[in-house]
Nucleic acid binder design. Structure first.
Lengths: 264, 264
DNA sequence: GACGATAATCTCAGATGATGAGATTTTATC
DNA sequence: GATAAAATCTCATCATCTGAGATTATCGTC
């Protein structure tokens, strides 16, 4: 399906650069990807010219500065990040905690912004770090609001995960949990991602539509009590709702186009 | 030259996403790039599958989360950033200033890390923001150490820039300035990038070889005097030298490969 | 829940541009 | 300046890319 067209073959080169392996020689890439020498060099040339790859002294290739530039572009333009940042700040001011903004994309959760008010950053999830799906408050805050036809297969697929967390051993039981989350407006998880850390997350909706992200506060269990938990829940729920609402309001640059599209 | 092969045509799609314009509909992309509908959709599909693009509600495309993830990878792996960070911190602790680490790539300067100890961030250059070439201390700190055959055409090309800064009106005069920078080990620029702000930069060398980056401190002119400027210069020069030296020491993951390569 | 409109994908022929073996040039190393 | 390694070039073959139009999926609306 993919790999037969050169588009995918080029992009596949970038895929081999992982957290474990960030430097590759052309020779190694040839071996790994199975491309011929001239082809590989052609691809590399294109990627280098575009700035996605860069040569290191020694002939090694690494990811190039274009990546940094693009991330800057995204960060500056991402409405979710821009709108969410003040809330992250506020939550950290009010509690000894970390606050994060996490996007849901495809089958991944990706932290796109975070703040922290505790000395040793609780969350090991700065911007750019993908998070485990189907574990923790964040994932459930989003899942709970997916349309049934997306939710059901997802539950079925991760049933053993859910069972191990104690959410229930059957799809129906898990569905009840999800329903409860919808009623509460927040998902709370005790030590699912990091032991001893509580996560409180609420979904953020795109355009009054589908859940696309979550706002989450993580706090040491021993720093919390029933009352604070409730207060955090209220704040997270409200903040997420506000962000969702503001996302609905189209921003300046697309103000002229969007209302038109909606009528048309 | 480029644009005739599909590698470049695909990557060209990512190029149209700029700070000014971060959302494109397929229709607009077709018009902008001149690709046919099926071709564009094919490309988009590949880019979306790879995570470089994402669909927004409304049909608009934006840069995708893969970009964020890749930047995280780079940041975590970039020896320059890892090694430099503590020095940035130190410099900001010692002075009411901004400190930045800037990479030189191709014909661009790109900030890859920055710290700031003044309330209102002096430098408007966070990670990812490209900087003007041929202006400011950073660019000169790097240029001065380029091999002559690279330096001379570059000077010739930017002669009017240099003249407007007051570095000299002929190549020879500029060359003398560069020589002086090499003697001093730092480049100092008064208000070239931002009015009223002094920049003090020293080059960082890859592998005891070519200048690949610069460490820079920017500070309000009115916060400085002759003495502090000298102290900053010394610190910047020393820090840059340290970073260069440490870059020379190969890191863990390539320890086995590199010494071999050098002998071979 | 069905309709209409728009968006996205598919089909398929032609031909253009991609491919890789090997030669050649460039670049680093001593 | 000589040697070895790395990167690029040449070119014939043919696979794969392309684009017009038809078709199907998706969305919003009633």
């Amino acid at each position: 399906m993919s790999g037969t067209n050169s588009a995918d073959r080029i992009l596949a080169i970038l895929d081999v650069f992982t957290e474990e392996r960030l430097e590759w020689t052309p020779e190694e890439l040839m071996a790994e990807l199975g491309y011929s020498r001239p082809t590989l060099y052609r691809y590399i040339k294109s990627l280098k010219e575009a700035g996605f790859l860069a040569s290191m002294p020694g002939g090694c290739m690494t990811l190039g500065p274009r990546v940094v530039e693009m991330d800057y572009l995204m960060q500056k333009s991402d409405r979710l990040v821009c709108l969410g940042e003040p809330y992250l700040q506020q939550l950290c001011d009010d509690h000894p905690a970390s606050s994060l903004l996490v996007r849901w994309y495809g089958s991944k959760l990706l932290c796109v912004a975070s703040e922290c008010s505790t000395p040793n950053a609780l969350s090991s999830y700065p911007r750019g770090r993908p998070m485990p799906l189907a574990r923790g408050a964040i994932s459930r805050a989003i899942m709970a609001y997916l349309p049934r036809r997306q939710l059901e297969p997802m539950i079925a697929q991760n049933l053993k995960e859910f069972a191990s967390i104690g959410l229930g051993s059957t799809s129906d039981e898990v569905m009840i949990c999800m329903k409860q989350i919808r009623r509460q407006g927040v998902a709370i998880a005790y030590g699912e991602v990091t032991p001893g850390v509580v996560g409180i997350a609420a979904p953020i909706f795109s355009d009054s539509n589908a859940p696309i992200a979550a706002l989450c506060v993580t706090i040491e269990a021993r720093e919390t009590d029933e009352k604070r938990l409730e207060r955090i829940s209220d704040q997270v729920r409200a903040a997420a709702a506000n962000i969702s609402a503001e996302l609905g309001k189209y921003p300046n640059q697309t103000l002229e186009e969007k209302p038109f599209r909606r009528q048309a």
